[in-house]
Amino acid sequence: MLVINNLKASIEGKNILKGVNLEIKPGEIHAIMGPNGSGKSTLASVLAGRDLVKVTEGSVTYFGKNLLEMSAEDRAKEGIFLGFQYPIEIPGVSMVNFMKAAVNEQRKHKGLEPLSASDFLKMMREKKELVEIDSKLANRSVNEGFSGGEKKKNEIFQMAMLEPKLAILDETDSGLDIDALRVVANGVNKIKRPDNSFIVITHYQRLLDYIVPDVVHVLYDGRIVKTAGKELALELEEKGYDWIKKEVENNILA
């Protein structure tokens, strides 16, 4: 569904991504790991269509379409979801109104009628149960006054509501206690279907105990330097990233 080819991108003139190649097929879970500053979040931003990041070279194809030419909202409507590392607060806008706007935009895009108020609320209830989120959430403003854990759970809830084809979770596990981590992971596992895919960006192996990836990539200095099965995550946990860094440097010298 997604093919990234030699992707290079910069932020404010600084080169961050230096030639990323990646292919994701329907039903796959890819984990992207790597030390701080390696370009993980930048990759997520490029895929979601954030203007701040300038693509300087390469291509991204999504279901045969040039993703880089699509606006952020069109990408969302075509089924790309980004779980934010730092979810944004929108004071005064209730979760109900926010999600209603989002869900109905997506339905409009598919040529469907907007959901009736009762159908919509029913959907909210079901999805809230699915991701074990506080039922009072609906009446609160988007992320306003939410704890760190609540914000992350709220991202998973929104993902459940929007049923994306490709969900990118940007460090959704950071700052979560073990219970919240389990809730987030369970949410992902319940939403998973044979035809949708996930990119899980994380620092730590522990999330991958709950969300079992098909492939693990290591992103370092703007490139994917290692790709292997789920056992790679365990190896990284054990040895740290220095091992990878050394390997990369040796390769360059050799």
């Binding site: 909202e73 806008v93 989002a102």
Partner: peptide
């Protein structure tokens, strides 16, 4: 954030202002 949920910039401004 709104764009990423499929909401256009115009609608996002309306939403944020009303909020």
């Amino acid at each position: 954030y709104c764009n990423q949920r499929g909401i256009s910039t115009e609608d996002a401004i309306a939403l944020i202002v009303n909020g």
